[in-house]
């Protein structure tokens, strides 16, 4: 029982990070149809910049704000410098551009921070909290709470603000959105900036648990991508559900089956779901109309 609880706690914690990465994917995908493979790098940037700024003696809060800021700047720069100039290039080309961006960012991080692992102290206390015999790190609650808060904020932004309406309209029909006077470029900038912020928040929260290094982004991008697919590409709720499910599948299989193959089992589960529901769990059914 305690063991199961332990695994579930781990799964939800790591799943929260996947969920945030998937949410970032979804935001950009909905507005632009682009799958941004550099999404995982935002998580890396969030963690790395926090580590660097606290090392300079900044208080944690300031460092975190700085990290989100840097990440947003990078996100916007990606749009302006790499994605917008590609114009109407084919999806494969754009995917390769974002992969190129992610290689570039990884290279930059390696130059700036070196190849070793970096960490920060847990924000609250180093003592784990005992729940029914399971030791849960206090930071895990921050990750889960932070994810919940970030996604709530995201939801409010989408549903309750004018900017959010513009984003949703663009997602539903880009041409129509332009015709009613929505500034497409501004929507894209917000999508990339927002997506970068979401990724950075995940990175800041999870670094005390998992540590960070220049190359954590690739794996996170893969997992986030898989989570987004699992939930159904384009659905924010699906992204959250997909992320949590993936995290749980991974933690439970690491615990009960094989830690070496935990990633394999997570991917196999995604496979299985996609074969049964080719548009993901909550994805829109798309009938090919001819």
């Amino acid at each position: 029982m305690a063991e199961l609880l332990q695994y579930i706690a781990t799964g939800i914690t790591i799943g929260s990070v996947y969920a945030l990465v998937a949410l970032g994917f979804t935001l950009i995908y909905n507005c632009s149809g682009i799958v941004n493979f550099a999404q995982g790098e935002f998580v890396m940037i969030g963690g790395m910049v926090t580590v660097a700024l606290t090392a300079y003696g900044l208080p944690l809060e300031a460092a975190a704000v700085g990290a989100v800021g840097v990440s947003i700047v990078v996100g916007i720069a990606i749009y302006i410098l790499a994605v917008a100039p590609a114009g109407r290039a084919s999806p494969v080309t754009v995917i390769i551009i974002t992969i190129g961006v992610s290689i570039f960012l990884r290279g930059a991080a390696q130059v700036l921070f070196g190849k070793q692992f970096h960490g920060v102290k847990p924000f609250l206390s180093e003592q784990p909290v005992m729940i029914l015999g399971a030791a849960v790190q206090s930071q895990a609650f921050l990750v889960i709470g932070g994810t919940a808060a970030a996604s709530l904020l995201f939801w409010i932004l989408l549903e309750r603000t004018l900017i959010g309406k513009a984003l949703m309209a663009t997602a539903a029909n880009r041409l129509a959105a332009q015709l009613v006077g929505i500034n497409l470029r501004r929507v894209m900038l917000i999508a990339f900036g927002g997506s970068a912020a979401i990724g950075a928040i995940a990175g800041i929260l999870v670094t005390p648990i998992t540590l960070t290094s220049y190359d954590v982004g690739t794996m996170l991008a893969l997992k986030g991508f898989a989570a987004a697919m699992l939930g159904g590409m384009g659905s924010p709720l699906g992204a959250m559900a997909g992320g949590l499910l993936l995290g749980l599948a991974e933690a439970l299989s690491a615990g009960y089956l094989s830690s070496a193959y935990k990633d394999a089992i997570a991917f196999l589960a995604t496979f299985a779901v996609l074969l049964l529901a080719p548009n993901g769990l909550l994805g829109r059914r798309s009938v090919n109309r001819v």
Binding site: P85, A86, S90, G100, V101, I103, F104
Partner: peptide, 18 residues
């Protein structure tokens, strides 16, 4: 090395998309 490799891939794909 990695940084320049990434930059080259991005630049080539932007200017020669096909």
């Amino acid at each position: 090395e990695t940084l320049v490799l990434g930059a080259i891939v991005v630049v080539v794909m932007i200017f020669l998309p096909s």
